[in-house]
C-alpha cells in the first residue's frame, strides 16, 4: 500500500463517517458541523484527484457559504431544546423502507461498477486546468455559463423575497 492509497482510505473514512454522523445525530447543530467535515473530506478527495480548483471552490462555497447559511437557518427556526431537533421519523416501517432502498442501491450500483470494464485513459492529462476550464467556460459553453449566472441572480433575489415575507402595506 503506497501513500496515495493510505490518503484515499483516510479521506474516505472521514467522509463516510461524518456523513453517517450527519444522518444519525439527534442534535441538528452537531449534524451541521459534521456536514462541514464531510464537505472538507470531499474537498480533500478532489485535491487527491488533481482537481485543485474544484477543491478550492468546494471549500469556499460548501465549507464557507452553504454551511454558514444552513447554521443561520437553524438558529432562526430552532424552537425546542437542541437534543430533540433532529429526530428520525417515528414510524419504524418508513425507516426500514429507507434502509432497504439504500442497501439495494449500494449493492446493485456497486456490483455494476465493480464488474464494468471502463475505457480508462492511460496518461493523466497534465494540462493547466484553470486555463482549460476558462477556455471551455468562455468558449464552447458560454451559454451555459451565462444561464448559470442568471440562475444565481434569480435564486438570490427569490430567496430574499421569500425570507423577507410579504409586504404589510
Amino acid at each position: 500500500m503506497n501513500l496515495n492509497d493510505a490518503v484515499f482510505i483516510l479521506l474516505a473514512l472521514i467522509t463516510i463517517g461524518s456523513a453517517l454522523g450527519v444522518v444519525a445525530s439527534k442534535n441538528i447543530i452537531h449534524s451541521a458541523l459534521l456536514l462541514v467535515l464531510t464537505f472538507l473530506g470531499v474537498a480533500g478527495l478532489y485535491f487527491q484527484m488533481n482537481a485543485g480548483f474544484i477543491g478550492l471552490v468546494q471549500i469556499l462555497v460548501y465549507g464557507g457559504a452553504i454551511s454558514v447559511l444552513i447554521i443561520f437557518a437553524i438558529m432562526l427556526v430552532m424552537d425546542v431544546e437542541p437534543e430533540k431537533t433532529n429526530l428520525p421519523t417515528p414510524s419504524l416501517g418508513r425507516r426500514m423502507w429507507g434502509v432497504y432502498l439504500v442497501v439495494l442501491l449500494i449493492i446493485a450500483l456497486g456490483a455494476s461498477i465493480w464488474y464494468t470494464r471502463w475505457p480508462l485513459a492511460m496518461s493523466a492529462a497534465g494540462a493547466d486546468e484553470m486555463t482549460v476550464l476558462a477556455n471551455l467556460m468562455l468558449g464552447k459553453y458560454v451559454v451555459a455559463f451565462e444561464v448559470a449566472a442568471i440562475l444565481l441572480l434569480v435564486a438570490v433575489v427569490g430567496a430574499i423575497i421569500l425570507a423577507k415575507g410579504a409586504d404589510d402595506k
Binding site: 474516505a12 467522509t15 463516510i16 456523513a19 453517517l20 450527519v22 444522518v23 441538528i28 449534524s31 451541521a32 456536514l35 478527495l45 444552513i70 437557518a73 437553524i74 427556526v77 431537533t85 433532529n86 429526530l87 428520525p88 421519523t89 418508513r94 425507516r95 423502507w97 429507507g98 434502509v99 432502498l101 439504500v102 442497501v103 442501491l105 449500494i106 450500483l109 456497486g110 461498477i113 465493480w114
Partner: peptide
C-alpha cells in the same frame, strides 16, 4: 463506490428525517 455509499447515506437521510433543514443537508 465511495460516491455510491455517500449517495446512499444522503438518500437514507432524505427518507428518514423529519426536520426540513436536515433533509436539505
Amino acid at each position: 463506490i465511495l460516491s455510491t455509499v455517500l449517495f446512499g447515506i444522503g438518500m437514507y437521510g432524505v427518507i428518514s428525517k423529519r426536520n426540513a433543514v436536515a433533509v436539505l443537508m
